[in-house]
Simulated scan of single mutants.
Amino acid sequence: MGSKRILIIEDEAKIARVIKLELEYEGYGVETAADGAKGLEKAKTEGWDLILLDIMLPCLNGIEVLRRLRSEDQTTPIILLTARDTVPDKVTGLDQGANDYITKPFEIEELLARIRACIRTNSAWRTAEEDPPLSIADLKVDEKTRLVTRQGRAIELTPREFDLLVYLLRNKNQVLNREQMITRVWGFDYHGDTNVVDVYVRYLRKKIDYGFDFPLIHTVRGVGYCMREPRNED
């Protein structure tokens, strides 16, 4: 792996130079842009591990640069640099998708710590993101976005239905009894009737099985339920 790449979008040349030197000393690959328009172009056409973005920029202000970047790139960490320690700036920036902010003047050690934290968090998130979506036959479930599709058709589920589906999928081809499903989906402290499982399985079947070529949720009499592709008619 090469060094992490950081883009500094900052119009004050002296500040940009100091940050660039400090980051290069820490082993980062660093480039700079002196206005919002050039920074936005550079941010969109090259890959970066983190972007330092000043709010007060010529041509295009930092909040607008942030908004446009986030419309296309939801993952690259962005730390805002602002000379104005005001709540509206911070709130607007965070609402538009900034990961963090730091107010000028700042200690370089604090900036370095925030950069390390953002990159570390993003790396962990990317690793989790690389986990493949859960799937069986023509059903696909993306746990991060909570998107469920079958034959490419989006299916709306309640939070409990979604959790139940994920548990069944994670244990596909295994027969699960009601007690197991209660414990994992409703929690250890659930003291209601285990028939709630049958009710929610029925809800799920209406949404992911009815109207499709074959069922995925199968009843195992006297035991519970199993999610699998049909080998033969039950």
Rank of each mutant, 00 (worst) to 15 (best):
A128L: 09
E109N: 08
S123H: 05
L134E: 02
T145D: 09
F106V: 09
K140E: 13
I115W: 01
E130G: 01
T121Y: 10
T92D: 14
T86M: 13
A137V: 09
L134Y: 02
I119N: 01
V87P: 02
P88S: 01
L111Y: 08
L94A: 12
E143S: 13
S123Q: 12
W125P: 05
P133R: 07
R116L: 06
A128H: 04
A98S: 06
I136R: 06
T149E: 09
I102A: 02
L134G: 03
I136Q: 11
Y101K: 00
A83I: 01
I136D: 11
R116S: 07
E129R: 13
D89A: 00
S135Y: 04
R150D: 07
L147Q: 15
L147C: 11
V141S: 10
D85G: 04
A113K: 11
K144H: 11
D142R: 09
I136Y: 03
V141I: 03
N122W: 03
R150C: 07
R114V: 00
L134F: 00
Q96C: 15
P132E: 14
I102S: 01
D85F: 09
T127N: 09
A128D: 11
A128T: 06
I115M: 03
I119M: 01
C118A: 08
D89K: 00
Q96A: 15
T149R: 13
A113L: 13
